[in-house]
Design a protein around this nucleic acid. Structure first.
Lengths: 241, 241
DNA sequence: AAGTGGTCTAGACCACAGA
DNA sequence: CTGTGGTCTAGACCACTTT
């Protein structure tokens, strides 16, 4: 029962954050929350701990604070703060069933560009996976991932039909916690269009991602091509400062 | 001289954050920073204050922390955390000179869709601005903004050739601090293509934004169409939690 | 074992909003 | 004015790594 253990060892501010998040969903936008001092008292913790929880809720776009006035429930948010997510998670959030069709899986020397992106040598090996990603059995995305072979030994022998992130984390203890993404619009050529089941010349979103682990080391360089008619990118952005 | 006053009234953790950000830029990636306790001592503040500064630096992607080991300089970041920015700011960051060609400016009833987005009544008035946005005198983006007339009285009589956000903030004290964006790929039709100086059928990024002020009230609904060959979207994303 | 960041406490004063 | 969130202190113990 890891479930209970995890909950038991959760820091207080995270537990409080989760409880409050659940409650907030049932409140009207712009309703006033209890004051930080009241929450501290009722939860039996210090105000600093409550502030940690509220900070996270504000970061997630669930509440906003007005100095001198109080803390309020935010308006509805269609999108999280563009949390980094895998294709599988992304589709599950949208209520669809993700699947995958493997087109190719091999190992080659990185070459100059990938070596630079992944922080390895030009002739170090990388594993290259090309997959069609489907949601509810409809092709949505064409994805080519490159991983440094040294970080994922034996990956090619594993089941590659599901979430790559889950395999990376579960088997290799590789957690992608940060990524740099570049998004462009493009039109599909004949080859890509046929793989995605669209007419050639249809628009698509081309996303390139370099994923970094918890020590800021690059662990993936992935290019994804999404059908524009089945996919959009939703993001909540906040002013810096 | 508001300059000095502002600096003088800056909270300590923000001042420390700025100092450290400047120093970090001259350090090698993955170098070890002083410990939080050392920083607290050398800056003459408490550890909690140092942590506030470091939290902001981590949020900005400049450092990462490893429990038990220390705080380190992050690798180079091509993109900020997709800070919310206006077209003008966006182009200036890319080292280009932004300008604007006004196509139309008028006032109409909101209608059901805009009313819903802006939280106003269907027959409340909105100001609609359509502009071609240029960078270094080349058309980049076709932008249609809708603002609730009640929030920006007399806007149509002002100079609309520059940053709308600057006018909103400077004249009307409207600060957009948060936005919901939806990004899609599209192909340009004949009309849009000719305004942007591209062939019809060329790809473009279509971005719709609802901007919210510091009290979470919608203040703009804007659609921007960017030439794919002159514009990409760069974003740094982090894992939630 | 020693030292790091992660969490938490119990206070305090400040700047600001609102009646 | 009162009460709010914003900032800050000076501790303490815990979880974790060992650049």
């Amino acid at each position: 029962m890891p479930e209970k253990d995890v909950e038991a060892t959760l820091p207080k501010h995270q537990r409080i954050r989760q409880e409050m998040a659940a409650q907030i969903r049932s409140l009207e936008p712009h309703s006033l929350l209890p004051t930080e001092r009241e929450l501290a008292k009722s939860q039996g913790v210090s105000r600093a701990t409550i502030r940690l929880a509220l900070d996270a809720l504000r970061e997630a776009g669930l509440v906003y604070r007005v100095q001198g006035a109080g803390t309020f429930v935010a308006g509805p948010t269609i999108s999280k703060t563009l949390a980094l997510s895998s294709f599988s998670e992304d589709m599950e959030i949208r209520g669809m069933v993700p699947s995958s069709r493997l087109l190719s899986a091999d190992e080659t020397p990185a070459g100059p560009e990938l070596a630079e992106q992944l922080g390895i040598e030009t002739d170090d090996l990388v594993i290259r996976l090309t997959r069609v990603r489907l949601a509810d059995d409809e092709p949505i995305c064409l994805e080519t991932a490159h991983l440094p072979s040294a970080r994922v030994p034996g990956l090619l022998d594993r089941d590659l039909g599901g979430s790559l992130y889950e395999v990376m984390q579960g088997i290799y203890h590789l957690k992608v916690v940060r990524a740099e993404q570049v998004v462009r619009a493009m039109v599909l050529d004949v080859g890509d269009a046929s793989l995605l089941g669209t007419p050639p010349g249809a628009p698509a979103l081309r996303m390139h991602r370099i994923g970094l682990d918890d020590r800021d080391r690059p662990v993936e360089s992935t290019t994804s091509i999404y059908r524009a008619d089945r996919y959009d990118l939703r993001l909540a952005v906040r002013r810096a400062e």
